[in-house]
Design a binder for these strands. Structure first.
Length: 385
DNA sequence: GATCCACGGGAATACACGGATG
DNA sequence: CATCCGTGTATTCCCGTGGATC
């Protein structure tokens, strides 16, 4: 337990009966410094990085495993540490082509969910590597490429590219091609849900789903720093862990949702019903929150307003479009809203469920159901204002 | 040095056509 | 075949940048 948590506990005595002490502790997307139960994976990633400690670049690698298995958690924690002030390797890096010593490499972590195009990938990488801001407009991809090249010539980098091969992100193979121009200046670590195809990269690290006990630990740890004392029991953690079958994202999302419900009802601890409603708000399977929260602003707005619509307003895509177009917060043409809804359905963030009604003629309409953790999204969206 | 303007990329919008059904 | 739903794609809009021009 950290100091902040201890202090918040004491504060409660002063009549401040808050159930939720720290939303970020429950946030499935917010990663903590020491992800538990992933020691062996950490070791293997460090094995892959080992040449860095001898002043050489490692060959490219891939890390893969199912959703909610802590891939991002491990890499976030590790790369944050390695790019921090603590890490200072003894020797400089030798490039394979030149015997000249260059600086030690930077460690950067880029998310292809936020960087789905060539332009954006270069942009994200470059801004992660430099202090000064990189223009997002008015500059060509070519331009960014050459800026990146000269930056990397000064200092090489180990680049972890997260979430490759998802519905809207580029494949590991594409990422490799885009980094081809920086050969010998960059080592790639791609992170995705499926194993790489073919004989690239050299090193492949598999990360299995969490076991039951570890998942319970994770929930208890997060719960104890995020919630008031005794608000969340061990047996409740066991229930959630069993339900989530190894997916920490879903388990935490359900806990977060349960806490939001209990908090709205003014309870000081989670009830069985809160837990149920928390789980109900996380569809199985669920689109990951990290994805939903990196969608462009207006798409998130459409999703947020979608959650406010009545059953009747969601009976068909047309009805939903009209209802959303009427919302004062949404300043988009009906055609665009409709476009968004179909695209979100295509990506599996919402699901179209076809009605089998027969009252009107024409193709039967379909109603839209969210396929992402609704309560968590609502809360996080409203908090960021 | 202030102003103008073309450019590049992404987001929004429009539109056309294909599919399903009574 | 009339009518509504679904999707691919072309076009327009927007917004900074950075070079040209005054």
């Amino acid at each position: 337990m950290d100091i902040d948590t201890r202090i918040r506990r004491r504060e409660r005595r002063g009549g401040n009966h808050r159930l939720i002490l720290e939303y970020q502790a429950l946030n499935p997307v917010a990663h903590i410094e020491e992800p538990p139960g992933r020691g062996p994976v950490l070791e293997r990633v460090l094995d892959y990085l080992d040449p860095v400690f001898d002043g050489r670049f490692p060959a490219d690698a891939a890390l893969w495993g199912p959703p909610g298995s802590g891939k991002s958690a491990v890499i976030t924690a590790l790369f944050q540490r390695l790019s921090g002030p603590v890490f200072r390797p003894q020797a400089g890096i030798q490039t394979t082509t030149r015997a000249q010593t260059v600086e030690t490499p930077s460690f950067v972590h880029v998310d292809t969910r936020a960087a789905a195009s060539e332009f954006q990938l270069y942009h994200e990488t470059l801004s992660a590597l430099t202090d000064e801001s990189v223009p997002e407009h008015g500059v060509s991809t070519e331009d960014l490429l050459s800026r990146l090249r000269s930056q990397l010539a000064e200092q090489g980098a180990i680049v972890a590219v997260d979430h490759v091969g998802e519905p809207r992100t580029m494949t590991a193979e594409t990422v490799r091609e885009l980094f081809e121009p920086f050969d010998h200046l960059v080592s790639l670590l791609t992170i995705g849900r499926s194993p790489p195809e073919g004989d690239w990269p050299t090193t492949v690290i598999e990360i299995p789903a969490y076991g039951q006990q570890v998942l319970i630990d994770i929930l208890m740890t997060r719960g104890s720093s995020g919630l008031a004392a005794n608000a969340f029991s061990h047996s409740q953690a066991r229930t959630l862990a069993a339900w989530a079958s190894g997916n920490a994202h879903d388990a935490l999302a359900a806990l977060f949702g349960a806490a939001v419900v209990a908090n709205r009802e003014g309870r000081e601890r989670l009830s069985t019903q809160d837990l149920e409603r928390g789980m109900d708000a996380v569809p199985q399977p669920s689109a990951s929150l990290g994805w939903v929260l990196t969608l462009p602003e207006n798409r998130q707005l459409v999703l947020r307003e979608l959650l406010n619509l009545s059953e009747t307003d969601r009976q068909s895509v047309t009805a939903t479009t009209e209802a959303l177009a009427d919302r004062p917060t949404i300043d988009l043409s009906p055609g665009t809203i409709r476009r968004f809804l179909y695209e979100l359905a295509e990506d599996g963030i919402v699901e179209r469920i076809q009605a089998e009604r027969s009252d009107r003629q024409g193709r039967p309409p379909s109603r839209l159901e969210p396929r992402f953790p609704t309560l968590v999204f609502e809360q996080l969206y409203d908090m960021q204002g």
